[in-house]
């Protein structure tokens, strides 16, 4: 196999990456994770490169993860936050990008509530862009870190039964995970109330759709919960958090339908007591905290590969 080429590429979503390329990224992330466990967590590989975290939608955790990743590779990091910026004064994203670009940015990591905004940033900057979450569309670095976390624990993804439970409609994490997990050969089931399930899921992603938690969890190797937001109730999508919890919560009681040692995951932030009970979130099968650590490693790997860092 030829070595995959990553130099200058965008990461809008995982559909642009083959299974081989995804595995290559995971291997690179493994190396990066090792750096993160050292006492001196820094390598000089991206010295002189400038990475901009362009967060038009707030997310402290994801921004910190990107910035830590850049710092550990010795890149210079500039942080653009919408609430204290010209975007608040009515400047367009396009003009913001022109302004930033004039300052010599090499790579953008963007978070934005509008699907497709990473493409817009790339169009107007000509620079590679890593999508840090665009609306309900995609969150490829989260998917990569989720897949990395599973791969690290269970090895080959092929044939694994993965069940994702919750508000599928509003989840960019699910959409990117479905693309990546299916590419690597997993059997993915999505489960949630019918009003929170997009149409055509089977057709688009080749996944299974279940509305009953017990059926969805049957024989699962991996179970991922998703954040359930109260505002969906006022949008008329479900009657109450209580009723949601009654039917879809991940608990000791419900999780027993999955395989005995199934991995428990959650992209965070969690609503304890709503979509997941503490007994599960903090239990022995949970890898939720490790997911966060792996996020830094995966983002380091992508930055390294895209900016052509020297190993």
């Amino acid at each position: 196999m030829d070595t995959p080429q990553f130099l200058g590429r965008n990461v809008f979503d995982l559909d642009d990456y083959s299974a081989e390329e995804i595995m290559y990224i995971l291997e690179a992330a493994k190396g990066m994770k090792e750096i993160n466990l050292r006492e001196y967590k820094k390598i000089p590989t991206l010295r002189g490169k400038t990475i901009c975290t362009l967060f038009v939608e707030n997310s402290t955790r994801t921004r910190m993860s990107f910035e830590l990743a850049a710092n550990r590779l010795s890149a210079d990091v500039v942080s653009f936050q919408a609430e204290v910026s010209a975007l608040q004064k009515g400047e367009s994203l396009q003009d913001t990008v022109y302004t930033l670009d004039a300052m010599g940015i090499d790579l953008y990591c963007i978070r934005h509530s509008s699907p497709g905004s990473p493409q817009l940033v790339h169009k107007h900057s000509g620079k590679p862009v890593i999508n840090g979450g665009d609306g309900r569309h995609a969150h490829p670095t989260q998917a990569l870190l989720d897949i990395f976390s599973i791969w690290e624990k269970l090895g080959d993804i092929r044939g694994l039964k993965i069940t994702i439970v919750g508000d599928i409609l509003n989840s960019r994490v699910v959409r990117s995970n479905l693309i990546g997990m299916k590419k690597l050969g997993a059997e993915v089931t999505v489960c949630g109330p019918r009003t929170l399930m997009p149409s055509f899921m089977e057709e688009i992603y080749g996944c299974k759709v279940e509305y009953d938690l017990q059926t969805a969890l049957k024989d699962a190797d991996v179970v991922m919960g998703l954040r359930m937001q109260l505002e969906r109730q006022t949008e008329g999508l479900f009657p109450s958090l209580e009723e949601y919890t009654k039917h879809y919560v991940l608990s000791k009681e419900t999780i027993r339908y999955a395989k005995k040692d199934a991995l428990i995951m959650h992209p965070g932030p969690m609503n304890r007591g709503i979509e997941i009970l503490p007994e599960i979130a903090d239990g022995g099968q949970s890898i939720i905290v490790e997911q966060v650590a792996n996020g830094v490693a995966v983002r380091m790997a992508l930055m390294f590969l895209i900016l052509g860092g020297k190993a």
């Binding site: 699907p115 497709g116 609306g135 569309h137 959409r175 149409s199 055509f200 688009i204």
Partner: peptide, 9 residues
């Protein structure tokens, strides 16, 4: 339709 489901728009 399909594109709305895929893009999240």
């Amino acid at each position: 339709g399909r594109i709305a489901s895929k893009t999240g728009l």
